[in-house]
């Protein structure tokens, strides 16, 4: 029996110790931390697209890296397909990594500039001893065709520098998909792609979802993009999930004042639309000294006394719709 949830995250935390200057080290003993992810829990159903959305410094990327086990969590639990992978190492971790592939924002950074595109896609097949030689090459050619790099024989021989940004991201997708993974962590995968091509890349990602019965953790700051593909969306603010709901509900009925502010600020290609209220202030420069109580209270138009003292829990306000706000 397969687990309903492919991924479960419980009370996940990641604190980064802050480097102190020499004088500070002499004067203070207390270690200070950046609380990048500060106790978040969620479950991702098999076959869904689950999105973590938020602004710079909200902890969405750190969460993705924790799940991929590229970072060690400070606290909490990560369960993949029923198995606790929080502290997995060595061969066991490698087995999990085959089933869980990342796609990152910047294909310039994740592709080796000296390796031909075809070789780059073939490499994981050889590392994991799935296929070699001609068999591997024909798998790669198939994959190039599926991601729209046609004719595949030509693209096989090219180097990353010969490709445009959109084409490079197609290569990253091919490299992830050739492993036939079950779970993809896509961190800002289309953020750098020009708007005329964004939907083309998303379409390829969704075709693979169908074909391989994939589950996606989609990480983005672009809520408008998230709307196109997500089944559920979690909005993060300073290391916490403030609202989590199915896509329709969160767009039609956003409840957390931060979610509302975020949606109001997103530009819409319509010059006749009346601008809604714009939130003042900014996300604190770094989440070192996070505000007491609800982290959003210093910027919140609805805040009252309780908000500065007690942290609101994430509670279900209607079926499947969770909000962390004392007002809801």
């Amino acid at each position: 029996m397969k687990n309903e949830y492919i991924l479960e995250v419980y009370n996940l935390k990641k604190y980064f110790p802050l480097e102190k200057s020499f004088i500070e080290k002499l004067l203070t003993r207390k270690k200070r931390f950046v609380r990048a992810v500060d106790g978040i829990s969620f479950k991702i159903r098999r076959g869904e697209v689950f999105t973590l959305a938020g602004e710079t410094g909200c902890g969405k990327t750190t969460t993705g890296r924790l799940i991929l086990r590229l970072l060690e969590p400070t606290e909490g639990k990560i369960i993949f397909d029923g198995q606790d992978i929080t502290h997995l190492t060595g061969e066991d971790l490698r087995k999990i990594r085959r089933r869980m592939q990342p796609i990152f924002q910047d294909p310039y950074a994740s592709l080796n500039p000296r390796m031909k595109v075809g070789e780059a896609i073939k490499q994981p097949l050889e590392i994991h001893q799935i296929a070699t030689g001609d068999e591997a090459k024909s798998l790669v050619l198939d994959m190039l065709e599926k991601v729209g790099l046609i004719p595949p024989e030509k693209f096989y021989e090219l180097y990353p520098r010969d490709l445009s940004g959109g084409q490079r991201q197609r290569v990253s997708i091919a490299r992830a998909m050739i492993m036939k993974p079950e779970f993809i962590v896509a961190d800002e995968a289309v953020s750098m792609i020009d708007v005329s091509l964004k939907a083309a890349i998303l379409e390829i990602m969704m075709q693979f979802k169908k074909e391989l019965n994939l589950t996606y953790l989609f990480i983005t700051h672009e809520l408008a993009v998230a709307k196109y593909i997500s089944d559920r969306i979690a909005v993060m603010y300073l290391g916490k999930i403030v609202e989590l709901a199915p896509t329709k509900k969160i767009f039609n009925n956003p409840i957390h004042p931060y979610t509302k502010a975020l949606m109001a600020a997103i530009p819409v290609p319509n010059p006749t639309r009346k601008k809604k209220l714009i939130l003042t202030g900014e996300v604190p420069v770094s989440p070192i000294d996070v505000p007491s109580g609800c982290r959003f209270h210093p910027r919140c138009p609805m805040a009252y006394e309780k908000c500065s003292k007690e942290e609101p829990p994430l509670i279900e306000v209607e079926p499947e719709h969770y909000v962390a706000c004392w007002e809801s």
Binding site: D194, S196, K198, V225, Y228
Partner: peptide
Amino acid sequence: LLEAVPNIEAEVTEFKYIPGNP
């Protein structure tokens, strides 16, 4: 461009993009 731009207020039914590359 206007069709391809993700629009938070639109009812999304399909992916629209401009074929090819710049």
